[in-house]
Structures are given as structure tokens and as C-alpha cells.
Design a protein around this nucleic acid. Structure first.
Lengths: 192, 192
DNA sequence: CGACTAAGTCAACAACCGTTGACTTCCACG
DNA sequence: CGTGGAAGTCAACGGTTGTTGACTTAGTCG
């Protein structure tokens, strides 16, 4: 332990830990309550901390949201995936992003009433979804990617926001059996 | 003019007119700003009226929203529609409701961030969409209706809220050619 | 005309919000 | 030991919100 420079002490370590805890709580709140109904006080209270500390770390509510809404879809490379297996590869990523990760829901909720959030979501689609799908679409890749996006978004909205009973209660496998052929159709089949 | 009973005078007529004006303004505000960011003061100001008058007519904000979110999809009877023509019958109603009518978009926007609006939207689905589709689905009508709903909702979100370029710019016929087979599949085909 | 009543206004309330700046606590290090 | 600085708290601010109750205006009818 010769170096003290760049070696945070116990206080510093606990500082980044509480910062991360605040970010987690913010993600959860934004995801379930949306932007407006999420209060700085509630986020702070979830971590057991003073509201002033939240603004000390993140500046203000808008910046906190921006940082909480940053994420990476981690879409796999689809180059060597046969058409029949596309859904089996894509759907698990869908569930992971919307259920476990939980970073996507805040953005979806906010995008409905905030043009800025809508623009951010469009960027995610253009930079991550469209390129990943482009490698398996023969013609009109933009149209096909957007149609896949519409089905995926609608499924997320029905299942995680609206909680439409049948769709919200179905298992991953059941959903994959229903939706899988649709994704495959949008990506590979020629419409009539 | 023998009857005065049930014959509203000028004051009463102007009263229902301002009430209707308030309802229109509320629909517009809820549609663009969502539930939380819509304020009673803003709605009142749009009509050029005191905020107290809004609560006088509608009780409170929640009731105002409930009344502003009421509408009828006017879904046709699908009893005698062959499976091949289902999409051709349903899609025009989709465009009419989301483009011309314009009463559904507020509800979608608000539903993303307000549990109340989400509940209202669920009611519309359960009372209008599901029963209308049930007459053409052989088995598991609830699942099939919910899946159709998810695709329709996702299309509306992509096209009218997010405005994803390819989907937002396509014509009615192009969209019908792409999405039609999916609706038909959800309603009539057996999944693997 | 004068009383009645509906339509609408006014000011104010309690609560809650995001944000601020000064204060306290406490650990590490010279 | 004691001092500096980071981590965190505290109380308060200015503003906005939904909602309330008393007040004013104005048309109608006996």
C-alpha cells in the first residue's frame, strides 16, 4: 500500500457505493412511476439518504434521469443465425432487457409524453436495433427493422406497462411461440 | 314558449358549451402532455376560465380525465367476415381511430405514466376490443385478442408517438400488406 | 322593480416539489 | 494530536399544484 493516489479510502468507496445505490433506486422509481411521479425525495428515501445528497451527486432531476436511462441492449451478432432460430435468439434478449435490466422501461414511459425522451429512444433504435437486424434482412432493412420494433414495443407496452392480463401472465416460452413466427416473418418473408 | 321546464335558458346553454370547451381543452392537454404534466390551471386557461370552474363542473382532476378519456372505437361486427378479409376490415378502423378521431392518442400517452389512464385503457380493451375479436377466434380468444392488441398498440406507438421514420412514412396500403398477415395469424392460426 | 338562482371569479389554503447553502460528523494523514 | 476535507444532514427557500369556500355578476321571472 505505497500508493494513496488513485486509491480511494473507505469513505470514498462508500461514496461510490451510495451513488450506485441512488442510481439503482432511481431506475426502479422511474421505471414503475414514470418521470413526473418520481420524486427526488422518494429516491433518496429508498436509499435511506437525504434528498440533498441526490442532487449533490447528480446535479438535478433531469441529469439523474439521463444517467438512469443510459443502457446498452447488448444485441448479439446475427450473422450466422439461421432464419428459423432468429426468434429463439432475439426473444431472450427482449425479456432480459425489459425484466431484469429494467433500464428500458423508464425511457418507454417518458417517451410517451416527452419529445426529448422519444428522440433518445429513436436513437437507441437507429444505433442498436436497426444495425443488428440489418445483417439478416435481404431487402428494405429499415422497414423490416421498424416493423420488428413495433411488435416488440407493443409487446413491452402491453406486458409491462398496461399489464394486459393474458399477455402479462404468459410464460417466456408461450410468448416466444406466439411472437417468434411474427419476428421471423417481418425479417425474412416477402409480404403479399 | 309555454314550457320553461327542461328548456334551458341562455345561461344554461352557454354553461354546457363551456363545459364542452373545457372537455375539449382537457383532451388536448392530456393528449400532448400526459396526465401528470397536465394542470387544471392550464386547462382552465386554454378556455379562458377560472380553475375553480373546472373543478365545479368535473369534481376533480381524476374525474375530468376519466370523462376526457371516454370514447367508442366503433368496431364492426366480424361475424360474417372470412379470415382472409379480417385485416382489410380491421386496419381501416385502426387508421380512423388513431388519425382522424384523435381521442385515442391522449389515452395512450397518458397510460404510459399514469396507472389511472392505464386502467382506463385496459377497460377499453376488455369491453370493446376483446369482445369484437372473440367472435372470430376459435380457441384462447383472450390470448389472441391481447396479441392483436400488442401489435396494434406497438404500431400506434411507433407511428404516432415515436414517429419511427419507415413506419411513420408508409402508406395505409403498405402498412396493411405488412401487418395484415400478422393480425390474421394471431386471430386464426395455431402457433407451433 | 326586486328577489332568486345559476355562472363564474377571487383569494387563499395546505401540501408537495426541486433545489440551495450552511452546518455537522468523522475518518485519514501529516 | 489536530487539522483538513470529504460524506452526509438539516432547515428552509420559492414555486406550483389541486382544491375550497366565500364572493360577484347577470339573466329571468313574479
Amino acid at each position: 500500500m505505497t500508493y494513496t493516489l488513485g486509491m480511494p479510502d473507505r469513505r470514498a468507496r462508500s461514496a461510490v457505493a451510495t451513488r450506485a445505490a441512488i442510481l439503482d433506486a432511481a431506475r426502479a422509481r422511474f421505471g414503475t412511476d414514470g418521470y413526473e411521479r418520481t420524486t427526488m425525495r422518494a429516491v433518496a428515501s429508498d436509499v435511506g439518504v437525504d434528498p440533498a445528497l441526490v442532487v449533490r451527486y447528480f446535479g438535478n432531476k433531469e441529469s439523474l434521469f439521463a444517467e438512469a436511462a443510459e443502457f446498452d441492449l447488448h444485441l448479439p451478432d446475427l450473422h450466422d443465425v439461421p432464419a428459423k432460430d432468429l426468434a429463439a435468439v432475439l426473444m431472450p434478449r427482449f425479456f432480459a432487457v425489459w425484466e431484469n435490466d429494467g433500464a428500458f422501461l423508464p425511457l418507454l414511459r417518458a417517451a410517451a409524453s416527452s419529445p426529448r425522451a422519444a428522440e433518445a429512444m429513436l436513437q437507441v433504435f437507429a444505433r442498436q436495433v436497426a444495425p443488428a437486424l440489418a445483417v439478416v434482412t435481404a431487402d428494405r432493412p429499415d422497414e423490416r427493422a421498424a416493423l420488428v420494433g413495433s411488435q416488440v414495443l407493443g409487446l413491452a407496452f402491453s406486458r409491462y406497462v398496461l399489464r394486459v392480463p393474458p399477455v402479462a401472465n404468459m410464460t417466456h416460452e408461450q410468448l416466444m411461440r406466439w411472437v417468434g413466427p411474427v419476428l421471423e416473418y417481418y425479417l425474412t418473408t416477402e409480404p403479399r
